[in-house]
Design a protein around this nucleic acid. Structure first.
Lengths: 228, 228, 228, 228
DNA sequence: AATGAATGAGCCTTCATTCAT
DNA sequence: TATGAATGAAGGCTCATTCAT
C-alpha cells in the first residue's frame, strides 16, 4: 500500500478538463494538479467498476473510459491491476476511520456515543459507495491477503478496540448490564454490517430501515427504549 | 481434494446387456451411479473453486481437473459456466433449510430453540463450506440477480419469517422484553453472519469463538446469563 | 459518481498534439498509414483464407499469421469473424462494378460492348481472386442471407438490369434476332459464371479457353462469326 | 427426392426398433436390411445437413439426431466425417447420370433430345436436393480434390462428351448453324448451372422461370422459336 | 506525461472421435 | 451391432500489459 497520496481532494472529483482542450480556466491549475485530478478520476472510476463487477471481471478499459483517460495512463499511476485494487481498497475507508471511531469521551453517555456512531455510519457508509466497498472486501478479501491483512490491522482491530473500550466504559458506568459483551464487540457492530449487505442484495426485495434497526439494537444493548 | 483416478473401473469386463434380455437394471444402475458420482464430483470441485476464486476468476479447467473429469464433461451436466454457478449456489443451501429453520414448537423455551439454531448453524454452516457459500452470495449476488432473488425468496424471507415468529412467541411468553425486536429479526441473526465473514477473513489474525459469541448475544436478547 | 462520458474513448480520439511541437502531420500520417496497411493486410489475408477454406474452416489464427499481425489485432478492425466475412465479401467486388457494367453507350455496337465486358471480366474477375470470391458467394450465400441479399441488390439486379438494357438495345437495332433473350439476361452471363467455376474446380483436369468460349457464345447470340 | 422426412430424427426415429424390444413387425426385416435402412437414414440425414451447412459447419451430432441413430453408429458405416462426405457427394448423383445423359439416338431431333434433357434436369435436379448438391460441389470441391476429381471423371467429362456428340450430330444435320459450339459444350449447359445457383441464392429475391429460360436458350442455339 | 494501437497468453466452449457397456 | 457418455484438442474472443509516437 505504497504510494497513495493521502491528500486527495475527496470532495468534488468531477471537473476533469477535457484532455487536449484549451488551457483550464483557473491559472492555478498546473501540471501537478491536473495529474492529481487525473489520478483521482482513475481512482473513482476504478472503485465504481470494482464495486460493480468485482476484481476479476473489471476491465481496465472500462476504468479508463469512465475516468476519461487512456488505458496506458493508468499504468503511469499504478503498477498493475492488482496493485491498483489493493491500494484503492485499502485507502478508500481509512480517511473515514477517525470520524467513525471517535475517542471515548468522558463527557456524554456511551449510548450517545454509539448513537453518534450509528448515525455517522448510516450517513457516511451505509448509504454511500463505502458500504459497497465493505461488501467488496468481504468478496475479495480471501483472494487478497494483503487486503484482509490491511483491513484487520487498520480497520477491524482498531475499530473493535475502540468499541471494546466504549463497552467497558459503559459497563463500568452501569449503562450496559452485560459484562460479557466486552468480549465480543462484534455483536455491537453486527447489525451495521448486516445492514450494508442487505442494502446491496435485498433492498429491492424488501427495503430495510437500517437506522431504526440500529436504534432497536442499541435499545437491546442498553436495556432501555428510546424514540427517534 | 483427491481427484478420481482416470482408470477407475477399467478392469470391469464388459457385461454387455443382451439386447433381447430383460431390463439390465444392474448395468443401468451402474451407469447412472457413475454419472451421478461424476456430477457430484463436478459440483464439489466447482463449489470449492468458486469459493476460493469467485465466479469470474474460476477456470473450468481447474474445476475439471479437481473433479477428475475432462473439460467437456462439465458441459454434459451444465449449460455453461454461469448456469452452473447459479444452479450450484442456489441448490447448495436449500437441503439445509428445513433443519436450520425448525417450526416454532410450543414445547420448550424459545431460547432453547435459538440455542439449537445457533448450534446447528455452527455445526452445519459456520464450520463448513456452506459458510463460505454465504460469503460467496454476498460477493456475487449483485452481479447475479437470479441468485439474489433466489436467496431472498427461498432462504432470507423464509428464515426471517420463522425467526420473527419465534421472537413474537418469546415476547408473548415474556422471554424477550424488547417487543420491537420482532420488527428486525435480522438483529438476531446478525452475529451469525458476522461470524461467518470473520472466519473467512480474519480468523488467522484473531480467532473468534463464534459459539460463545452467539451465546452472549442470546444472553443479551433474553436478558439472562447462561453458561455453556 | 464522477464518471466520464461513456463516449470519450472512441469518438473523440483526444487529439492531443505534442503540446510544444508543431502539428506532427508526418507522425499522424504514418500512424494512419500503418493502420490502413495493416487493415489491408488483414483483408487480403482473410480473403485468401476464406477462399481457400470457406468460412467455417478458416481460422483467425491463420489469417493473423498470413497478415503478419497478432490475433487480437483483427478485432481492432472487425467485430467478429462473421462480420469480417460479410464485410469482406460484400465490399470485395463493388469497386469493380462500375467498370464491369458500363452505361449502354449509343455509339458502337452492342456486340462491341459485350466483347468489352467479356474482356474485362476475364481480366478483372476470371483470372483473379475475384473469380474465387464469386464461387465463395455461391458456397456460403445460403448460410449468410446478408451476403446473398447484398449481392442480389448491389451486383445481380444491377448487372442484369444493365445487361437487359443492352439486349433490348441490340434487339431494337437488329443486332440480336431473339427478342425473348431480354427476358433472361442470365443466359448471356451464364458462360462467364461457368468459366469461373470451371477454373476453380476443373482447370487442372482440362484447361478451358474461357475467352474463346465467351466469343463463341457471343457469336451464338449475335448470329455472326468473328475471329479474335 | 429420396431424402428422409425432415421429422424423422426426433419424433419418429425412422423405425428404429427400441433396442431390447420385441422383434420388428415385418418378418422379412432382417438384420442386414435394418442395417441398410440405418445406413440410408444416415446418408439422407448427412446430405441434408451438408447441403444446409457445408462440410465444416455440419455436426455429426445433428446428422445422428436427424437420422435417428446414435453418434457412434455413424462410425460403424463410415471411417470419419471426411470419408463420409466424399463418399456421399460422389455417389449422390451417379445413379442419375444414365437418365440425364441418354445415348444420342438417331431417331428424333437433337433439339428434342436437349428438351428432354432440360426437362429431366428440371425435374430431377433443379427442383430437388440434387441441385443443392451441385452447389455443394462448387462450394467444397477445391478443398476436396477427391471430390473434384471424381466429379470431373464421372460426371463432367462424360456429360460434356455426350453433349458434344449431340452438338456435332446437330451440326451434321444442320440443326445447329454454329460449328464452333462443339468446342464448348459448356455453353449449352451453362444456363442450367446458373438456374441451380439462382434457385439457391436469389429465388426469394426474384423467382426465375428456369424451364422457360432453358427453352429460350435452346431457341438461341437452334435458331428457331418454339412455344411450350 | 499521455496516448491507444498492438500484442498474445488465456479462457470458455464446441465437436469429432473413442470405447465401455 | 448400437449406444452415448466421455474425452481433449482446437478455435473464437477477451483483456492486461507494453511501447512507439
Amino acid at each position: 500500500m505504497a504510494n497513495a497520496p493521502k491528500s486527495a481532494g475527496r470532495t468534488k472529483p468531477a471537473h476533469r478538463p477535457e484532455p487536449g482542450r484549451a488551457a483550464p480556466s483557473r491559472a492555478s491549475n498546473h501540471r501537478a494538479e491536473r495529474a492529481a485530478e487525473r489520478r483521482q478520476a482513475i481512482i473513482d472510476a476504478a472503485l465504481d467498476e470494482f464495486i460493480t463487477r468485482g476484481f476479476t471481471a473489471t476491465r481496465l478499459d472500462d476504468i479508463a473510459r469512465r475516468a476519461g483517460v487512456a488505458k496506458g495512463t493508468i499504468y503511469l499511476h499504478f503498477k498493475d491491476k492488482e496493485s491498483m485494487f489493493e491500494e484503492l481498497i485499502s485507502t478508500a475507508i481509512v480517511p473515514l476511520l477517525s470520524r467513525l471511531i471517535p475517542p471515548p469521551s468522558m463527557s456524554g453517555s456511551v449510548r450517545d456515543a454509539l448513537e453518534g456512531f450509528a448515525k455517522a455510519f448510516m450517513q457516511e457508509v451505509a448509504t454511500t459507495r463505502r458500504g459497497e466497498i465493505i461488501r467488496l472486501v468481504v468478496a475479495e478479501g480471501p483472494r487478497f491477503p494483503a487486503i484482509a491483512d490491511f483491513y484487520y490491522r487498520e480497520v477491524i482491530s482498531r475499530g473493535l478496540a475502540a468499541m471494546r473500550a466504549l463497552i467497558e466504559l459503559a459497563i463500568a458506568r452501569g449503562e450496559i448490564k452485560q459484562p460479557e459483551l466486552a468480549r465480543f464487540p462484534q455483536i455491537v457492530v453486527a447489525p451495521a454490517i448486516v445492514a450494508v449487505i442487505w442494502k446491496s442484495l435485498f433492498e429491492r426485495h424488501s427495503p430495510l430501515d437500517a437506522t431504526e434497526m440500529l436504534r432497536v439494537h442499541l435499545d437491546l444493548i442498553f436495556g432501555e427504549r428510546r424514540t427517534t
